[in-house]
C-alpha cells in the first residue's frame, strides 16, 4: 500500500473532528460531572469537575431491587424484539422486491403509509386490550415487528445488489427462502447492522407502552422504572404534601435525578455499541463476499 502524504484535506478533517468530538461530547461530560457531584453543591456552583465527588446519586437509583429486574426486562426486550423485527423486516423487504409478487404495489403502499397514520391513544388501547396484550410481554415485540421504516431501508439496499447473484442461485434450484437466508442476508449485513442498532435502541428506550398497558412489576422496563422514579421525586409533589416541614436529609435536586437517570440508560448502550461498529467499517471483508 502506497503511503500517501498528509494532505490539506486530512489536516482540516482532523481539526474538524476534534472540534466535533468536543461539541458532541460536551453534554455527556456535563452530565457525567453533574451526576458524580453532590446534588446541592453542583446546583450552586459552576464547575467543570465533580464537586463533592460521590456515587450517591447512582447508589440511590440502583439500590431499588426493581431496577435490576427492569434492566433484565429491557435487555430481553431489546434482544428478542430486535431479532423478531429483523426477521420480519428483512423478509418483507426481500419479498417486496420480487416483481412477480401478486399485489406487490398495493402491499408496499400499505406498508409505507403506516408511517403517517396515527389512530390515537384510545383506539390503540382498546385494540391492544382486545388482542390480549395487557400485561403481556408480547406487547413489547409484536406491534413493532413489521416496521415500515426498516423495511424501506433494507429494500433500498437490496435493490442495489446485482441480480445476477440471485439468478444464478435460483437456476441452481434454490428456493425463495434459501436465497433470502444464504445470499441476501449476508450481503445486507451493513444495513442489517444499522437496523439492529436502531431497533435495539428503540426497544431499550421505550416506556410508553409499558405505562399504558403493563402493570405487572416483573414486566416493567428500565426506562419506565426510571420515569416513575423521576416523577416521584418531583419537587412540587413532595412540597405540597409536606409544606413547611424541615427535613434532616435533603432530597437531591430534580436536575440531578434526571441526569443520573439518563446516564444509567445511556452507559449500557455505549458498552454494547462498539461491538456493532465493526460491521460499519469499509467493506474490506465484505468485498470478498461480493466479488
Amino acid at each position: 500500500m502506497i503511503h500517501k502524504k498528509l494532505t490539506l484535506f486530512d489536516g482540516v478533517m482532523n481539526v474538524v473532528s476534534v472540534v466535533l468530538i468536543i461539541v458532541f461530547l460536551f453534554p455527556f461530560y456535563y452530565m457525567l460531572v453533574y451526576s458524580l457531584s453532590d446534588s446541592q453543591m453542583i446546583s450552586r456552583h459552576l464547575s467543570f469537575v465533580p464537586i463533592g465527588f460521590t456515587f450517591q446519586n447512582y447508589v440511590d437509583i440502583l439500590n431499588s431491587p426493581e431496577i435490576v429486574k427492569a434492566f433484565i426486562v429491557s435487555a430481553m426486550r431489546a434482544v428478542i424484539g430486535t431479532v423478531i423485527t429483523l426477521i420480519c423486516c428483512t423478509s418483507v423487504a426481500y419479498f417486496v422486491t420480487k416483481k412477480e409478487l401478486p399485489m406487490r404495489k398495493t402491499m408496499y403502499r400499505l406498508i409505507v403509509m403506516t408511517m403517517y397514520l396515527s389512530a390515537g391513544i384510545i383506539p390503540w388501547y382498546i385494540t391492544m386490550m382486545k388482542y390480549g396484550l395487557k400485561n403481556n410481554f408480547l406487547l413489547y415485540i409484536l406491534p413493532s415487528a413489521v416496521s415500515a421504516y426498516f423495511i424501506i431501508l433494507i429494500k433500498t439496499y437490496i435493490e442495489s445488489i446485482p441480480s445476477s447473484l440471485e439468478e444464478s442461485a435460483s437456476v441452481d434450484g434454490a428456493g425463495i427462502l434459501v436465497i433470502l437466508v444464504r445470499i441476501i442476508f449476508p450481503l445486507c449485513l451493513p444495513i442489517i447492522a444499522a437496523v439492529t442498532v436502531f431497533s435495539a435502541v428503540n426497544q431499550w428506550n421505550s416506556w410508553w407502552d409499558n405505562m399504558m398497558l403493563v402493570f405487572k412489576p416483573n414486566l416493567k422496563t428500565l426506562q419506565y422504572a426510571l420515569y416513575q422514579y423521576l416523577q416521584m421525586a418531583s419537587p412540587r409533589i413532595t412540597s405540597i404534601q409536606h409544606a413547611g416541614e424541615l427535613l434532616n436529609r435533603v432530597p437531591p435536586n430534580a436536575n440531578t435525578i434526571k441526569i443520573t437517570i439518563s446516564m444509567v440508560t445511556i452507559i449500557p448502550i455505549f458498552v454494547v455499541y462498539p461491538f456493532m461498529q465493526k460491521y460499519f467499517i469499509n467493506g474490506i471483508m465484505l468485498g470478498a463476499v461480493k466479488g
Binding site: 419537587p235 409544606a243 413547611g244 424541615l246 436536575n255
Partner: peptide
C-alpha cells in the same frame, strides 16, 4: 419550573407566592 425551583432553594429569590414552596 425545575430551574426556578433550584434558584428558590438556593436563596436567590426574595419573594414567592405559593405556600407549598416554603419548605425548600
Amino acid at each position: 419550573y425545575d430551574q426556578a425551583d433550584e434558584k428558590l432553594k438556593n436563596g436567590q429569590y426574595l419573594m414567592f407566592f405559593s405556600g407549598w414552596q416554603l419548605g425548600e
